[in-house]
């Protein structure tokens, strides 16, 4: 149920993002989805990859600061209110979202929401109760 996402520290200067991407490409690691958070000072690249352990190792060998974070991916209909219908009950259960991002699936009419919760285990329980489609890694791969 829980997916492993890589978080990379990037300095805020040219070439930092492309270097990380190049390392992954050279090692034949595919990025399923990603998002970039940035400040004036630095950025954090969050990426779900095809082979998380190998990706981590190659990035660390290249001197990049990497962490693995547990995230949850939920599949929803790609239509108005798709996200709101998930957020409302999460809020009702007092689940704190650290951050989230979303992408449209290659399957028409479906979208994927990726959440980083403060308490991932509690979130999994609630999402199950709500009978939402929580994706496993192979399912995510299929949707990208």
């Amino acid at each position: 149920m829980k997916l492993q996402q890589l978080s990379l520290f990037l300095e805020n200067r040219p070439g930092q993002l492309s270097e990380a991407c190049r390392i992954l490409a050279e090692n034949d690691i595919n990025m399923l989805t990603l998002t970039l958070a940035d400040t004036q000072q630095f950025g954090v690249l969050r990426v779900i990859v095809s082979d998380v352990q190998r990706a981590r190792q190659t990035l660390e060998e290249a001197g990049i600061m990497v962490q693995i974070a547990e995230v949850i991916a939920v599949e929803v209909p790609n239509e108005p209110g798709g996200l709101a219908r998930v957020l409302d009950p999460l809020e009702a259960h007092d689940l704190d979202i650290e951050y989230m991002y979303a992408f449209a699936s290659r399957h028409k009419g479906r979208a994927v929401l990726v959440f980083r919760f403060r308490d991932t285990d509690a979130a999994v329980q609630v999402l199950k109760q709500l009978q939402l489609t929580v994706l496993r890694e192979h399912q995510l791969t299929d949707l990208v």
Partner: peptide, 18 residues
């Protein structure tokens, strides 16, 4: 240089350390 102690996957945690 960022250390594992400073680095977090949330921007606000890193900002707070900084």
């Amino acid at each position: 240089e960022v250390t594992p102690q400073i680095f977090s996957d949330t921007v606000k945690a890193i900002e707070a350390s900084r």
